[in-house]
Amino acid sequence: MSDKSVYVQDLTRGIVRENPVFKLLLGLCPVLGVTAFFINGVGMGIAATAVLVASNVVISSLKKFIPPQVRIPCFIVVIATFVTVIDMVLEAFQPALHEALGIFVPLIVVNCVILGRAEAFAGKQPVIRSLIDGIGVGIGFTLALGILAFVREVAGHGTLMGPDPESAVYLFGPGFEPMGLFAQPPGAFIALGLLLGIFNVIFKKLNIK
């Protein structure tokens, strides 16, 4: 296999075949917790992607110096450092988003997607491949958050690009009565469960195992 096709595979694997949310069910806490609005969901996805890419690159370049017995604590420190950076960046430049994501920003540190990629991929593979893998899985994660948040916001609030009333687009006119359930915690579970069911059918039709 040529170099190029390996890279392409690294990139696409995380998006469909091993999508962290729809296929592997990893990192579900932020997936359910911040997806009441589309902007928050995508913002969370981008923040997690940034941490994932950075930690994948650093861990991959340090893999020769990390003794295998203490690799997990080492990985966690690297990830925690980048989470702190992202936390400060968000607080400085996107205070509204930082406020909306709340405790889920520092909780990126215990997101199993990131530690999982460090353990399964970046700790063994060369830097370039780890970088591409990070980007691929990050896109897959952001995509999943985006889809769920889109469904929940449209059904639960009848808007897009909320919660800020200035940017919110009302999709159904003033007489629309939104399904409040989807904006609330139970709706997150139910919407994700239904989406998983739909994706099961789609994956089966397309023969993606």
Binding site: P185, P186, G187, G193, L196, N200
Partner: peptide, 19 residues
């Protein structure tokens, strides 16, 4: 139902419990 087997039905159950 076949499509909902596995984690999908678990999440929907969790939703009802949450309700």
């Amino acid at each position: 139902p076949e499509a909902l087997q596995g984690s999908a039905i678990t999440l929907i159950t969790a939703g009802i419990l949450s309700l």
